[in-house]
């Protein structure tokens, strides 16, 4: 079941969040268990199933990252297990260096806190930049339906995953 068509929305990477929410509420009412309490079992089960799809779909579609991953998967891109060949070497180099710096700070004294806070801000900014890039590429894909753009999106998602991990790591240290 395609989530976009389930919600009756156009299949787009740049989705109107308020429109999605509106459809979610409408469909939630439509499939609400109270409305099926006295209906035959077959209908009740169908409504339950629709409710489950509705909730899963809403979770995926409202999050720009998950939404992009969903569309990539639909278009036959492997976004699960990925091998290193899919990651540009410069990115690995960069992530490695960032991890090294983080490790040094981690073993440092109290003075390292300021540097950790700085690193935290830097990673947050990098994540925001990746999100912005994702939005831009999403618009480009919606207009062109060009698979090459999806390939680029996949690259940004990989990068973002690394950045997200760095954010988590540094937040653990700052906590």
């Amino acid at each position: 079941m395609d989530y976009f068509s389930f919600f009756g929305l156009e299949r787009k990477l740049t989705l109107d969040a308020s429109q999605l929410q509106k459809r979610f509420y409408e469909l939630s009412r439509e499939y609400h268990p109270d409305r099926f309490a006295r209906k035959p079992e077959e209908e009740r089960l169908k409504a339950e199933e629709a409710s489950a799809i509705l909730n899963d779909g809403y979770r995926v579609l409202r999050d720009p990252v998950q939404r992009a991953e969903y569309v990539l998967k639909q278009e036959g891109f492997d976004v699960g297990e990925q091998r290193s060949k899919d990651v540009p070497p410069e990115l690995l180099e960069e992530v490695f260096e960032l991890n090294m710096a983080l490790e040094e700070l981690r073993h440092g004294d109290e003075d390292a806190r300021a540097s950790l806070a700085e690193a935290h801000q830097k990673f947050i900014n990098m994540r925001a930049a990746a999100d912005e890039e994702l939005t831009g590429l999403g618009q480009r894909y919606d207009q062109s339906q060009d698979r090459a753009v999806l390939q680029q999106i996949r690259g940004v998602l990989n990068r973002r995953r690394y950045i997200r991990n760095l954010v988590t790591e540094v937040e653990k240290e700052l906590a």
């Binding site: 699960g80 091998r83 990651v87 990115l91 690995l92 995953r161 690394y162 997200r164 991990n165």
Partner: peptide
């Protein structure tokens, strides 16, 4: 050799 697995965020040198 520098490799990585974006799924889990690992980097290995």
């Amino acid at each position: 050799g520098m490799v990585g697995a974006p799924e889990c965020g690992d980097v290995m040198k």
